[in-house]
């Protein structure tokens, strides 16, 4: 179970681990926690899945991955889990979620994200994905991103001054 000290730790560390010899010690000093407790708590949060991963967070855009497509599929309910698990194995897919269908206007229930250095590369990877996972018979749409209006890694939620949360989150 997560406690207020875990939240405090996530809040401070989501701004980034210092790039110095004893970074967890530095983080601990900011919140009155010793180094070993910081490491123990982070290890525990990672093991329980509350932290999905801990490490270097790269800027895709800066590294030349300027094309990104959200691809949505209409997969029969009985096979959506199996297909979702298969899609998520592809190394060029970086997110894969099941979401509820929205009637006939938007019948899709499986969403995945493909990043690439250009559109043709993304489309080529999508073809490969469709081939590997045998998806050609399923209805789909490809939504390339055109403009980013907002993107932030860190999120703050402050309903009251005393209990604020801050964290980085994957595409919800």
């Amino acid at each position: 179970m997560i406690d207020s000290k875990d939240l405090q730790l996530i809040k401070i560390i989501q701004h980034g681990l210092p790039i110095t010899s004893r970074p967890f010690n530095e983080i601990g000093n900011q919140i009155g926690m010793n180094e070993s407790e910081v490491i123990e708590r982070l290890t525990c949060l990672k093991n329980t899945g509350l932290i999905k991963r801990f490490g270097v967070i790269v800027r895709h855009q800066r590294l030349g991955y300027t094309a990104n497509a959200m691809v949505v599929f209409n997969i029969p309910d009985q096979s959506v889990v199996k297909v979702g698990e298969m899609i998520s194995q592809a190394k060029y897919v970086n997110l894969c979620y099941q979401r509820p269908r929205q009637g006939t206007n938007w019948p899709y229930n499986l969403y995945c994200m493909i990043h690439g250095k250009n559109r043709s590369k993304v489309l080529q990877q999508l073809d490969q994905l469709i081939d590997t996972c045998k998806l050609s018979q399923f209805e789909r749409e490809i939504l390339f991103s055109r403009h980013c209006f907002k993107q932030r890694g860190a999120f703050y939620c402050t309903p009251t001054a005393s209990s604020d949360l801050a964290f980085s989150v994957a595409h919800g």
Partner: peptide, 29 residues
């Protein structure tokens, strides 16, 4: 340390830190 600081300075790295899955802390949509 030097290489990572340089990558940070050049903005190839946004940070070194945690990624929290959706809906674990708070409610997202």
């Amino acid at each position: 340390l030097d290489a990572l600081q340089e990558l940070k300075k050049l903005d190839y790295i946004s940070r070194i830190g945690p990624i929290v899955p959706p809906n674990k802390l708070g409610c997202s949509m």
